[in-house]
Design a binder for these strands. Structure first.
Lengths: 112, 112
DNA sequence: CGGGATCCGTCTTGATACTG
DNA sequence: CAGTATCAAGACGGATCCCG
């Protein structure tokens, strides 16, 4: 993900979320996960370098903030900013769509 | 985009749309574009091999149908299936989010 | 000419090992 | 624990080629 190719708002969104991992990290943040280790423990098994890259990217774009742990200097907390939380408005419809698709897959009368 | 890593509905959606091009093709289809050449003419300038790959992928997943042109044997029409049209439910919120972001970028009082 | 397929150099992804 | 380094594999992107 580098510079941008048009000023379409969809292109802007795909700049930030058009990959297979970023939205999974945001999902985890909505679920209350806050630490590097917690993201790694999700069933999708994101690689550490990919996770580090995506977190950095999200922080750079003010979707996530990175807070030091006062009690353990080695650790950090990641939290959604209000901008990050605003992604809920399309994340929920997207999840709803995925749910409907897996339901269809189990009862495939007529689709297409 | 290969096999899948969990049965999270979000993962299922990212399987299909978790890249920088697929949703742009779907956007064009919603806008009434139907032919290979028309997709190429969009301002994002997708490469022909990428476009061919994405269209094939969309057809395989029953989001798009590929219809021959009766009058010109060389040409095809691509159209959204009803399943493809159902993506509207998250595509519109995603575009709306992108619009809000570009508005913020022009009037960045307090975000973050 | 329209709709791709193929080739090839480059950039990105991802698994694993390693470090502070 | 929270990353970085390394390196192979794959995706991207442009150019060219092919086929009806």
């Amino acid at each position: 993900m580098k510079f941008r190719r048009s000023d379409c708002p969809l292109v802007l969104a795909l700049d930030l979320f058009g990959d297979r991992w970023t939205l999974l990290v945001i999902r985890d943040l909505f679920r209350g996960k806050q630490r590097f280790d917690e993201f790694l423990s999700s069933p999708e098994c994101i690689a550490t370098n990919i996770l580090a890259d995506r977190l950095k990217h999200l922080v750079e774009h003010a979707l996530v903030k990175r807070l030091p742990d006062k009690e353990d200097k080695r650790r950090f907390f990641y939290q959604l900013t209000s901008r990050g939380q605003s992604t809920r408005q399309f994340l929920l419809p997207l999840i709803r769509w995925g749910l409907a698709q897996s339901a269809l897959r189990r009862a495939p009368e007529r689709n297409g």
